[in-house]
């Protein structure tokens, strides 16, 4: 049996992402990485909580934040989380085409989220002259929310790259772990966003 036969079995196992040693290692290593990411975001959240009232006489969170926009962004990201669950559901059923469709929807929703976030930042900078250098609050806000936005950009590039690279390969035991890990990352981005909309935006307008 050649390597190709091993990676393309007649019957796909029910958990193709963990059928190979490489897949198992990636799975474990990635959860370890997510633990580290949690600490990273905690330090940014802690900094934001400490500095959010230091507005240096400039715009405060009450002046800036509009809940409508944040609500739309939250719905987009939350829905994209469900669509990537659908993608992994079809992956486990060995239905490559449907998996790609759902990943495509996930990417579209993620791009929508990103568009709104860029609009939001441009709006703050042009209409309120609120930048990273305005105040300690500005620095903390753009670092925290911008870091999350950076994760969205990275996650989207990751999923798009996987989709293009594997478009003609179909699903096998080589790329199943890759898709699974990328979807875990995407869920983690949503986990962070739940705290951002609660701690930054909702607590910011209260």
């Amino acid at each position: 049996m050649s390597e190709q036969d091993v990676l393309n079995p007649k019957h796909m196992p029910s958990n193709p992402e963990q059928a190979t040693l490489e897949g198992k290692n990636k799975f474990l290593g990635f959860w370890f990485f997510l633990g580290g990411e949690t600490v990273l975001f905690a330090s940014l959240f802690g900094t934001y909580l400490a500095l959010r009232d230091s507005t240096n006489g400039g715009a405060s969170s009450q002046d800036l934040f509009g809940l409508e926009l944040v609500f739309i962004m939250t719905m987009l990201l939350l829905t994209s989380s469900l669509t990537s669950v659908y993608a992994m559901y079809h992956m486990k059923n060995n239905d490559f085409k449907r998996m790609m469709i759902w990943l495509g929807i996930t990417v579209a929703l993620g791009l929508g989220f990103l568009g709104f976030e860029i609009y939001e930042f441009v709006h703050y900078i042009h209409d309120y002259e609120f930048t990273m250098r305005s105040s300690a609050f500005g620095s903390a806000f753009y670092t925290l929310v911008g870091f999350h936005g950076g994760h969205v950009v990275f996650g989207l590039s990751w999923i798009i790259a996987l989709m293009f690279r594997n478009a003609k390969r179909g699903l096998n035991l080589y790329n199943a772990p890759k898709f699974y890990i990328a979807s875990l990352y995407w869920h983690f981005i949503d986990v962070v966003w739940v705290f951002i909309f609660t701690v930054v935006y909702l607590m910011g307008v209260l």
């Binding site: 600490v39 959240f45 909580l49």
Partner: peptide, 20 residues
């Protein structure tokens, strides 16, 4: 994975507590 992730959550809790 849970152990590793909750290890991270624990460190995250300490980080936020310390800063606040």
């Amino acid at each position: 994975p849970s152990m590793m992730f909750y290890g991270g959550v624990f460190a995250a809790f300490l980080t936020i507590l310390a800063l606040v």
